[in-house]
Amino acid sequence: MSKMGNRTNAIKVIARRDIKSTVNGLGIYVVASLAFLVAMLFVRSNLKGVTENGLMVMANPLNYPFFIAVIIGATYLALTSTMSVSRERDQGTLEVLFYGPIDSVAYVLAKFLEQLVTFLGLVIVYMVIFFVISILTNFGMDGSFLAMAGLSVLLAAAIVAFGLLLSTLCRSARTSVILLLVLLILFLAVDVVAGILNSMSAKDMSVTLVYIRVAVDMVNRGLQWISPFGYLNRGMLAIGLGSASLILGSIGASLLYTIVLLALAIRFLERRGVRK
């Protein structure tokens, strides 16, 4: 068998083993339920807004709850992949694997593929449940929801690749997990705060708020190419504007971002070695 064939086979074997392990564990189900419970709080808030005011204008009331559910799911998968790489290194499993026909490329890609396939399954469950919510509440589910579901796969791919990169960079599992959580919360916080400030009327803003807005805008612009959420925003904006070139550009940029992170993860794994 050629080197490529061996590698493909190794990727399939590791990914299948890990997917089986994830599906048979309780973690992914707990996270899916938790994601839905948090998302339901936002659905409830939207529903309450309409019933209290009698009339409310909203763009896509299910998109944001779905986005929250995606973030929780993708972060969980990134955390598990980060922990599994660190754990396998600490327990010596990684070293044993590398004595066989497995190299850094096969290992990182297998871990990535496993999480991506799991996320695809999760997104399908999300879509089914959100479809039921849409029927129950009559909240609209338009093309932008499907587009968001599609883009969420790219977002999850980027977050998982980001987690894998951190796991190959950091010395301990604890450091990589903390770093991943801190960075994701930072990226998300900047994204959410920038969104809130941008939606506020700039005419009546206090001077303090204007300076905060300037600072957040600068940070946000800096993070746009580092944060996985920046890529999702670009994709959503492109879909909103209906521009095919922008949509393709944002998908291309997101894929390139993921490929670069995976390439860096492979490079760092090779440099650090597989021994603890």
């Binding site: 189900y29 339920s33 839905f36 419970l37 339901m40 919510i133």
Partner: peptide
Amino acid sequence: LYVLSLLPLLVGLVVV
């Protein structure tokens, strides 16, 4: 809606 949210957990328990 909350019961709907607990469906995945129920499936998970059955699997385990």
